[in-house]
Nucleic acid binder design. Structure first.
Length: 568
DNA sequence: GCCGTTTTCGGCCCGACTGTTTTCAGTCG
């Protein structure tokens, strides 16, 4: 069993225990251990074999026994008994806002509702209002939630989230009483997709700030309206929360509303361990005496921690690390790789792209148009390659101060070979090898295909390695372990494709890759001058993956990069 | 179900808001 599968069983037990009305802390202990298993770098099967499960935090006698049974036999009677009490379809009800274990239990036991469809039917029949813990408003809220769930999956790309958040921030800045305003939440942590937007403001007149907020352009419904917190839903379906605090409270609130739930749990526990209390309004000692912190850094310091950048606040090792790394910054990026041009499916010319890169402060730009098999994208035939190289030389002559690199985004064909023969391949400064076709392979087939491409001596970078499209298409299954081994052995870099629809390789794997000595490369996959700005999304993901400037190919200068490639 | 310089029982992070109540439970982050 994979660690994901083991964790999924434990998480399901936690939900089932809640539905059963069990002690919530019992439920939580299953959730905690599920999390530990997902985070652990240990092989869980090995822990079971060596009877070392108890080394995982939160595993006691009962969980040791259950996990051992689950891993050894592939099933767990305790889990199956719990499952037998409730229909599987009931789990979908948890996605409706306002519905938790208690209300779902009532719906199921009193009305026999087990599916979203039955729930909608019961609402339309007006049957929820008489139920204990429900009323007319709750019924309407459930109906709204059902409609919402139908319209959207409730997830948005980070690009959509940031766009909405920036617009709202600007709108609120025009309110005179606002002294500070920040985007918080998962957007500040630069998650690849977000469920909502969290804004935090400080100001002298909260009421006016709230009033302006609920009147913002694009606001379709106001979900809640209070003195310190209001929530709205934009026409796009995106939910936005605004919190207003005082200037003194701002740093504490910013930390509170930036950290993931799990990160915050650890922060508050650390405070508690030090006889303090941490919440969104402050860090308090003894009898509620405020420990003044001017900024987030001071809060971390008070809890004996170095400053933890927002992107790392996920409780994925930031508290255990010997030191928090000096994360890569925008000014560390010397060049921009993976740019398309009008030679294939780009909208901007070589010259325009070059000027755009120069204006953004890059010292070099790497062109990587599609290769000949990508007919749909106007892939370059050998003659086109020659033509493009001539033009690149000309553009470089008059560009001044920026270097152009001759690359290609070569399709990885079904058998793992690249899309040109050696004679052509050797002419490129770099080769990004990417899959664009035959996306439905088994894990074994897809892995073999990529391994063949990685072993090709001309491959420098593995482009968008899993082929995923966020919120619309899963990546093909891959044995990433094997891919990483091969990349390390053959000195092939892995792309962080910065297009907000991709953000592939996923940030959760970046730290592992870099620790194995693999170089990463932020590529905007730009098809226009504006597309160059997608680098910022890639940068957020790189930082989220704990990367330092030394880990990134495009933090090298052009000479260094070419030398790196030559030593392959 | 776990855990332990407050320790083998009694806690387990904490607060806001909503909707249902008529003082609070449930949900959410």
């Amino acid at each position: 069993m994979t660690r994901k599968e083991i964790a999924a069983v434990l998480e399901e037990i936690a939900l089932l225990l809640e539905l059963s009305g069990e002690n919530p802390f019992k439920s939580r202990s299953y959730t905690n251990v599920a999390r530990q298993i997902l985070q652990s770098s240990e092989d869980i099967a090995a822990l079971v074999r060596e009877k070392r499960l108890r080394e995982l935090k939160g595993v006691g006698e009962a969980l040791e026994q259950k996990i051992t049974e689950l891993v050894s036999t592939g099933k767990l009677p305790y889990h199956e008994e719990l499952r037998a009490r409730f229909p599987e379809t009931l789990f979908a009800l948890f996605d409706i806002p306002g519905l938790g274990a208690k209300r779902i239990k009532t719906l199921y036991e009193d009305l026999g509702i087990a599916t979203l469809g039955e729930l909608e039917y019961a609402c339309n029949e007006n049957r929820l209002i008489t139920l204990k813990g429900f009323g007319p408003k709750m019924q309407q809220k459930v109906l709204d939630g059902l409609a919402f769930a139908k319209r959207h999956q409730g997830q948005y790309l980070v690009s959509a989230g940031l766009e909405a958040a920036n617009a709202l921030r600007d709108w609120l800045c025009d309110e005179k009483s606002v002294s500070q305003i920040e985007i918080a939440g998962s957007l500040r942590r630069r998650k690849e997709t977000v469920k909502d937007v969290d804004l935090l403001a400080a100001g002298s007149d909260p009421d006016r700030i709230m009033a302006r907020f609920v009147e913002a352009p694009g606001v379709e419904t106001v979900t809640s309206r209070g003195d310190t917190k209001s929530s709205v839903v934009l026409a796009s379906g995106l939910a936005v929360d605004l919190r207003v605090v005082s200037g003194t409270q701002f740093p504490y609130a910013l930390a509170h509303f930036t950290g993931s739930k799990d990160h915050n749990v650890v922060m508050r526990q650390r405070a508690k361990d030090r006889k303090m209390k941490l919440n969104e309004y402050g860090l308090f000692q003894g009898d509620d005496r405020l420990l003044r912190c001017e900024d987030e850094e001071a809060i971390f310091a008070a809890l004996d921690l170095p400053y933890i950048p927002p992107e790392l606040r996920e409780d994925r090792g930031e508290f255990d690390a010997e030191s928090v790394p000096e994360l890569v910054q925008r000014e560390d990026l010397l060049g921009v790789m993976h740019c398309h041009s009008t030679y294939s499916d780009g909208r901007s010319s070589l010259e325009e792209m070059t000027a755009g890169a120069k204006a953004r402060g890059y010292r070099y730009i790497g062109f990587a148009d599609h290769s000949q098999s990508a007919a749909y994208a106007g892939g370059l035939r050998p003659a086109d390659v020659e033509r493009q190289h001539d033009e690149i030389d000309k553009v470089m002559e008059k560009a001044g101060g920026i270097r152009l690199l001759k690359g290609i985004e070569s399709d990885i064909l079904g058998d793992g070979s690249l899309d040109y023969d050696e004679k052509i391949l050797k002419q490129f400064d770099f080769v990004i090898a990417s899959v664009h076709s035959k996306l439905t392979m088994t894990e074994k087939e897809a892995t073999q295909r990529l391994l063949a491409a990685i072993r090709n001596p001309y491959t420098s970078i593995l482009g968008h390695p899993t082929g995923r499209l966020l919120l619309s298409r899963e990546g093909y299954p891959l044995d990433l372990d094997a891919i990483f081994d091969a990349c390390a052995e053959h000195r092939v870099a892995i792309e962080i494709n910065a297009n907000p629809h991709r953000l592939d390789l996923d940030w959760r794997h970046l730290r592992t890759a870099s620790e194995r000595g693999i170089k990463l490369c932020i590529g905007p996959d730009a098809h226009s001058v504006e597309g160059l700005d997608d680098v910022d999304y890639g940068l957020g993901i790189a930082r989220k993956g704990w990367l330092k400037k030394d880990d990134l190919l495009n933090c090298m200068d052009a000479e260094e990069l070419l030398a790196w490639r030559r030593t392959k």
